[in-house]
Design a binder for these strands. Sequence first.
DNA 1: CGGCCTGTTGATGCGACTCAATTCAGGTGG
DNA 2: CCACCTGAATTGAGTCGCATCAACAGGCCG
Lengths: 243, 243
Amino acid sequence: MEKSYNEALLDMSARKEDILKKIYLFSGLSDKDLETLSRLAITRRFSRDTTIFWEGREAQGFFILLAGQVKLTKSSPDGKEYILRIVNPGETFGEAAVLAEAGYPASAIALEDCQTLYFAKTDFLGLLSASPTLARNMLATMSRLLFHLTRQLEDLSLKEVSSRLARYVLDRCLEKHGRIEAGLSFDLAITKTHLASYLGTISETLSRTLARLKGLGAINEDRGRIIIKDPTLLQSIAKGTKF
Amino acid sequence: MEKSYNEALLDMSARKEDILKKIYLFSGLSDKDLETLSRLAITRRFSRDTTIFWEGREAQGFFILLAGQVKLTKSSPDGKEYILRIVNPGETFGEAAVLAEAGYPASAIALEDCQTLYFAKTDFLGLLSASPTLARNMLATMSRLLFHLTRQLEDLSLKEVSSRLARYVLDRCLEKHGRIEAGLSFDLAITKTHLASYLGTISETLSRTLARLKGLGAINEDRGRIIIKDPTLLQSIAKGTKF
DNA sequence: CGGCCTGTTGATGCGACTCAATTCAGGTGG
DNA sequence: CCACCTGAATTGAGTCGCATCAACAGGCCG
């Protein structure tokens, strides 16, 4: 498995404070708050395929991913799984469960060897009431999650697989290059089986759909590397036009 | 259309402060904060079928529903719609968009004549930084929304219509009676066409699925009134067992 | 009464999942 | 360096769930 594309975002040898400063959730915090946070942060490592927490388990704290890759999943009794979100370095996960007095809404599983910072619930809640900025950041983080989930729901209920895939391709391109343009390329950064679970389908269907997009001349693909060929076509497929 | 089941939750003739006190989002606030809020709150009415806000529009504020019923929807170019949430009296909507610097993630449409309280974004954000309790409540509200969306995603991606319907029936029963038990009954409180959109399907399929649950002896149904007959069976259908 | 909206039922077709077989890529050890 | 193994990816054939299209029944209201 390829390394995730932003692996080098965080310098692991840096002081905790300097790492924390780069996390969106902690932006704009006073030095004093950052200092407190860095005292509370616990370094935790997880090796590949380890479950970091189980869906339903009472949330004791939340994580910041420093290195590696994590999937947040729901799975059904008969073995199918749906990937809610792929967590990349610099992002937080498990935050929502800490706020609600409930269990984690999904399981978190390490896709690679991972390094994280962990904040215990009680520690964090205390700081939250003391720092309006932190609370404000947390609200912003959560609303973005809400938007993300809302969009996924829209896609799952109203669009078919090809649209979801096209949207995913466009999103990743935008994320990587800041623009959409013929000729731009990027890596999938996850296995196709995982991508399938993320798009709410299975690997066979994804394989066929990918082949179809290639056939239509919308993209090229070789061993997980995507090249945009026809952005306009992709956008219209993403909107739901049939071909 | 039947009146929503908790229509009488709020006494409209009461003073604004007394109404606000009963809203979860404002629970535990000081009298001073409540007083400020009641000064900021603007009464707004919408008649049936009016669009309260459009998806994508920049969020200027958010609403508390006092009376009536509102649907939050996404719709596709070809006319299909997905209902994210049905808002009942006492609940807030549009909150998330106020926190993110983005547009509303979905459209809000009045299903009946509605009465609301409206808070302008800037007013509310000011109060938010001044009151840690309010911020804390807001975070709790948003995490519950997150949980709700997460569950819907799980259902949509992993379960079929009969499971989703069974789950819905069980949820409503729990909400109405606080327990699940054979013989308990309740009203759907929305039209079947709307329920179909909420479950990510269409009215024809819902109709057939409902008939099938009746045939299996799991429920009885007559003109929108559901009677639980076999809770165990319902639960196993909701979990994904095929029949 | 006649129009309108909601809901039901039937026939048909399509998209996507299932199952099974095969190929491919990467990693291991002789 | 090649033979081997394992998990991922692809491809084909068959099936199923659900959307679509169409016709029709019932309740409500002007």
